[in-house]
Design a protein around this nucleic acid. Structure first.
Length: 608
RNA sequence: GCGCCCGUAGCUCAAUUGGAUAGAGCGUUGGCCUCCGGAGCCAAAGGUUACAGGUUCGACUCCUGUCGGGCGUGCCA
């Protein structure tokens, strides 16, 4: 396609020298296979600049384009509609293009100056069970990061763990109190325990001022008032305790730090275990929690105040940014910092220390406003600009929608609790195991287990990645594990069938994958044309931060292969040459599918 | 109140960023060779793209308004 673009650009320049250099030849894969392989849509846009009817321009372009080596001869019948030019590749040219794609990199060019990209993903909170929201951040973030890596960028993953601030201090205090009283043992604590303690702490610290006021106003009696009064003062007491704990934590008090560390270890142990189970490439080295910025926050605020970027407003410190109805609040009236402050520090570190040319946040869509503000604030503060660079790095929020249940309400258990991530994964594993067992009764349990795991993970990830990121997505075990149609398992199945051919081929002593390509059958042509799109699709998935484009492509590729598989015998081909050509086509299809799945974080199988 | 996002087949989703007759999967209906894995393939039916205007050769896509849904809105994270 880049080659065709160049040819048509030259034709445009030759035919209309005054049209300007920046004309897009608008070459794309044809939407309708019966019309052509590719199409050129440049005539309509040119018409405006040159003032000539688009069909006339199209026929003029046909005369000027020099592509006899690539395309079947063009004549008036190639021009359709308002001025589309339909292009069909010569069979030998198609074979040639596909052969040139048959490199270890599968035609994906390595950039001369690889950029550095920070991907913010996972973002768990201490003492809280992970839920489906984290699942999306893990899956989408990992896929986005892998896409960048595949395109040759240097990727740094950052797990912005919520491990700091008053809520964490509240749990820490609660745990310390429990330990002192002998209600709990630090060594035996689980994440479930912490999750419960977290919620108790939240409840304990939230004073029911409104309730108390209401009771007083309506004179509901001394008993009710006394109860609420007790609740409120209890809450105030608990809050004061938590604040004191926070201060001690910030002051590195060893007793508090020890408990906090224990809470962090328990949470991160489970988080990283889930990542490992899911094949999400996030480990300890990616952890860069809020606590790691704690020491920089005061400096950030001072710096911004000194340089006049921030101002004091009603006791708080804010950064005002043009175009926003509200400022970015970075220090509270009581001197405390906010999560925006941490994000400013994080952007500064990521851009100026880690050298990010681009920072991508895989965080749920509800935080859009927050990120817009934080991004804008760091740009005016200069934090988003690399030392020596002439402009700010790209800061992007790859926002994703909520996970809904099949009733279109937020995904919860029947009793209204968040679904634990580990429970969800176990459920998928259980269902996949049952299906794999049903389909492969002859297989041993030991053999089936890793297959079931791959199938379950492919199902979960593909279901999440295959639809538009920003939209809410309806989670359904039944659909993702139906294994029919547009699902992860369908893609795995396509690979399995290819590999099965090669096993049979090996039995017969055939193992060539470098035969000369002859692409005559429509199904062969279609498969070849699809394969050619791979580098472009990867690029566009990376540019747009939309893994679903890659999913759609892989599904098309698997479908094209299935049609080919049905129509074109490989091992039973009419001649040895044709068999070798088809084996090569199979081999390339396997590699592109496997490569694409890897980019999505899904690993292919030999059998299933 | 203001801001952001969303509204496409019965259901779940696409639409190469403004291109041709809006495409897939599920479900429904009908077909598929003693042959490489039928978790497959081929085909049919199913649409006023929420609604009303506008922009232009051309609009699911861009602009304005309306309706419906979700989310967020300076001292929580």
């Amino acid at each position: 396609m880049p080659i065709l673009s160049a040819r048509f650009r030259a034709a445009i320049a030759a035919a209309y020298p005054d049209a300007g250099e920046d004309i897009d030849p608008a070459i794309s894969a044809s939407r309708r296979a019966e019309l052509g392989d590719f199409q050129c849509n440049a005539a309509m846009a040119l018409s405006k600049r040159v003032g000539v009817a688009p069909r006339e321009i199209a026929s003029n372009l046909i005369k000027h384009v020099r592509a006899d080596d690539l395309l079947l001869p063009l004549d008036a019948s190639a021009i359709a509609g308002p001025g589309f030019i339909n292009l069909r590749l010569r069979p030998d040219a198609l074979a040639g293009l596909l052969t040139s794609l048959d490199t270890p990199a599968l035609g994906v060019a390595v950039p001369d100056n690889p950029s550095t990209i920070v991907v913010d993903l996972v973002g768990v909170n201490l003492a809280k069970q992970m839920h489906v929201g984290h699942l999306r951040s893990m899956i989408i973030g990992d896929a986005v990061a892998r896409t960048f890596e595949r395109l040759g960028a240097t990727v740094i993953r950052q797990n912005h763990v919520g491990d700091w601030g008053l809520p964490i201090a509240m749990v820490t205090h609660r745990v310390m109190r429990g330990a002192v009283r002998g209600d709990l043992k630090l060594d035996d604590l689980t994440l479930d325990d912490l999750d419960a303690l977290y919620r108790e702490a939240q409840a304990e610290c939230s004073a029911d001022h409104r309730g108390l006021a209401a009771v007083r106003r309506f004179g509901l009696g001394p008993k009710a008032e006394a109860e609420l009064q007790a609740q409120v003062s209890g809450a105030e007491q608990a809050l004061a305790d938590a604040k004191r704990t926070l201060t001690r934590l910030q002051g590195q008090d060893p007793e508090v730090v020890r408990v906090w560390q224990r809470i962090a270890d328990i949470t991160m142990g489970e988080c990283l275990e889930v990542c490992r189970k899911l094949g999400v490439a996030v480990d300890r080295s990616a952890s860069a929690g809020e606590s790691s910025y704690a020491g920089e926050l005061a400096g950030v605020v001072e710096d911004l105040l000194e340089r006049g970027v921030a101002t004091v407003d009603d006791g708080a410190v804010v950064v005002r940014v043009e175009g926003f109805g509200q400022p970015c609040l970075i220090r509270k009236g009581d001197g405390g910092f906010l999560y925006a402050t941490t994000d400013l520090a994080a952007i500064r570190r990521r851009v100026q220390k880690l050298g990010a040319d681009r920072v991508v946040y895989c965080v749920d869509a509800r935080q859009s406003l927050h990120f817009e503000l934080a991004f804008a604030a760091t740009r005016v503060a200069g934090y988003a600009t690399k030392p020596g660079a002439d402009g700010p790095s790209r800061l992007q929020h790859a926002a994703f929608g909520m996970v809904l249940g099949e009733d279109h309400r937020p995904f919860k258990t029947r009793s209204g609790e968040n679904v634990k991530l580990s429970a969800l994964i176990d459920e998928a594993l259980r269902r996949a195991a049952a299906i794999v067992a049903a389909k492969n009764p002859q297989m041993s349990e030991v053999e089936r287990e890793p297959i079931a795991r791959s199938v379950a993970i492919a199902a979960i990830k593909y279901a999440d990645l295959s639809s538009d990121r920003v939209k809410d997505y309806v989670f359904s075990f039944d659909r993702m594990l139906a294994f029919e149609g547009n699902t992860g398992p369908y893609l795995l199945y396509a690979v399995v069938r290819i590999r099965s051919i090669f096993r049979k081929a090996a039995d017969r002593g055939v193992d060539r994958t470098d035969g000369a390509l002859t692409l005559e059958h429509p199904a062969e042509r279609q498969l070849a044309l699809t394969l050619l799109r791979y580098p472009g699709v990867l690029q566009s998935a990376g540019d747009s931060l939309e893994p679903h484009r890659l999913c759609a492509f892989l599904f098309e590729l698997a479908t094209a292969f299935s049609a080919f598989f049905d129509a074109c015998p490989v091992l039973g081909a009419a001649s040895g040459d044709l068999r070798d050509s088809r084996l090569r086509l199979c081999h390339m299809t396997d590699r592109v599918l496997t490569d694409g799945l890897t980019v999505l974080g899904i690993s292919a199988l030999d059998r299933m």
